[in-house]
């Protein structure tokens, strides 16, 4: 089966409800989503500013691989992966994964798989600025 797939790297704030509406499907009994947000601390330091940078073309290619793998592994109706780049503020969403399926177990599992795999294979970097310095860190 082919799941409806949305893969985007965006510069503007992520509107989770709007992206979820795009996957609306009368056959879906479950919508599982993960929203990653910018937190105010990391490694014991206070984070004052954050910025994401992507190797955009490759990131989209790797996101497509995740979507294909998920659709092969679970009976999904839809899958969306949205990642924001640029400067973000504390509390803003950096990444959104939405999975729709007939039943919740498949949606939960596929959503977990998608976000965990994204963190290891998709070339997007996070730059954290602290009160006393800065660092490029894992996404």
């Amino acid at each position: 089966m082919s799941a409806k797939t949305i893969l985007e790297i965006v510069d503007a704030p992520i509107d989770a409800a709007a992206w979820t509406a795009k996957l609306a499907d009368p056959a879906a009994g479950a919508i599982a989503s993960f929203l990653g947000v910018v937190r105010d601390h990391a490694r014991g330091k206070s984070v004052v500013a954050i910025r994401y940078e992507a190797y955009r073309e490759m990131a989209l290619t790797e996101m497509k691989k995740i979507a294909d793998e998920a659709a092969k592994s679970w009976p999904l109706l839809g899958l969306a992966i949205i990642h924001r780049v640029g400067a973000l503020e504390i509390g803003e969403a950096s990444v959104l994964v939405i999975v729709t399926s007939a039943h919740r177990a498949d949606a939960f599992e596929a959503c977990r798989f998608a976000i965990d795999t994204l963190k290891t294979t998709v070339p997007i970097w996070k730059h954290e600025r602290y009160a006393d310095g800065s660092a490029w860190v894992d996404n």
Binding site: Y55, P123, W125, H127, S134, A135, W136, V137
Partner: peptide, 12 residues
């Protein structure tokens, strides 16, 4: 060619 930097730490 692209070099994908180490994902943790860094020297910045």
């Amino acid at each position: 060619v692209a070099f994908i930097p180490p994902v943790a730490g860094g020297l910045a």
